[in-house]
């Protein structure tokens, strides 16, 4: 395996990843949508596309880490919703907690959810999908504790968090995403944590035998995912201007599609942030294109589900080592 990879240059290795295909798909889509709708290739629309994917982008930053380590996180939408509504309640008229405290509380919520997920998954040893499916329901239920309050966001700092455009064109949320992706890429590439994570995703038993603290690293990966959930929750309430218990419902489907489309292998061990970023833009462009082309709301749901199935099928076919007989 190592020998084969060394035979090719860095550029050839890049060509062997799914990223070039993604860029190709994106260019084709751009042309198609530009031809189909006059409003597509306007600054106004592109600004919208880039600002709209803030929440999914931040969420996929964390999920990518979890999935590279062979894990899975379905609770992201609920966690973002919980962090969002709690922050919104703390910012309500009459309570008005100082902004840094709100940030701390939100981050504490996200990280503790991640910690709980990680502990259940590693120490008890439950399948991550089942675990996070359970915590998804629990956290969403907890969100409804504040269902009657309907808080509005009047705090200017939080309002600006997800709404400012740098130089009136470039959304600040995109900068967050790019910053997060770059930092996480560097962590994956150059730290021991990153290398260990890839090893665990590739072969957990091997990693354990090699002396890697598998459980600890997996728990950290879930905590990172929880951290990004809380940031996403803050951006959610900032962009929507209020706190509602149902915010973030169904985000897991979208984020899963983005991450798998971006070339992160289900089961772990492979993935890079460049692919995830391009996949993010592609998925958001498809959503935007469907709005511009007046596709009914419910058909968009079908398209999104179909997209996920298509993407994971391609993933399965690509990673099939030999003919599967059983």
């Amino acid at each position: 395996m190592e020998k084969i990879e060394r035979k090719y240059s860095a550029f050839m290795n890049f060509l062997r990843t799914p990223t070039p295909t993604l860029i190709g798909i994106y260019i084709v889509m751009l042309v198609l949508f530009t031809l189909a709708s006059r409003n597509f290739l306007t600054i106004q629309n592109l600004k919208g596309i880039f600002n709209n994917f803030a929440v999914f982008g931040i969420l996929s930053a964390g999920v990518t880490i979890v999935m590279i380590g062979g894990g899975f996180d379905l609770a992201i939408g609920s966690t973002a919703g919980l962090a969002g509504i709690v922050s919104a309640v703390l910012l309500m008229k009459g309570i008005e907690v100082p902004t840094p405290v709100v940030f701390l509380v939100a981050i504490a919520i996200g990280c503790s959810v991640g910690l709980i997920n990680g502990l259940i998954i590693t120490k008890v040893g439950i399948n991550p999908i089942i675990t996070t499916l359970g915590t998804l329901a629990v956290i969403r239920g907890v969100c409804y504790f504040w269902a009657d309050l309907n808080p509005r966001i009047l705090n200017v700092f939080i309002q600006n968090l997800g709404r400012i455009y740098v130089g009136n064109v470039f959304p600040i949320t995109t900068i967050y995403i790019i910053a997060a992706f770059v930092i996480l890429s560097l962590i994956l590439k150059f730290t021991r944590f990153g290398r260990d994570l890839f090893t665990i995703g590739g072969n957990e038993n091997l990693a354990r035998l090699a002396g890697i603290h598998v459980d600890r690293i997996k728990i950290i990966s879930y905590v990172i995912s929880g951290f990004f959930c809380s940031i996403a929750g803050l951006i959610l309430i900032s962009q929507l201007g209020s706190g509602r218990p149902e915010y973030g419902t169904g985000a897991e489907l979208e984020v899963l599609t983005i991450v798998v489309l971006g070339g992160v292998v289900v089961g772990g061990g492979k993935g890079n942030y460049l692919g995830v970023f391009i996949a993010l833009v592609i998925i958001q462009t498809i959503s935007n294109g469907m709005v511009l082309l007046d596709v009914p709301v419910y058909i968009r749901m079908v398209v999104k589900g179909a997209l996920l199935v298509l993407v994971i099928s391609i993933d399965a076919l690509r990673n099939r080592k030999n003919l599967q007989l059983y």
């Binding site: 419910y298 968009r300 749901m301 079908v302 996920l308 199935v309 399965a316």
Partner: peptide, 17 residues
């Protein structure tokens, strides 16, 4: 050859959609 958990989470959304 898709993992059945992933496949059926996807189709769940398709059927409901």
């Amino acid at each position: 050859g898709v993992n059945s958990i992933m496949a059926t989470i996807g189709t769940m959304f398709i059927w409901r959609g």
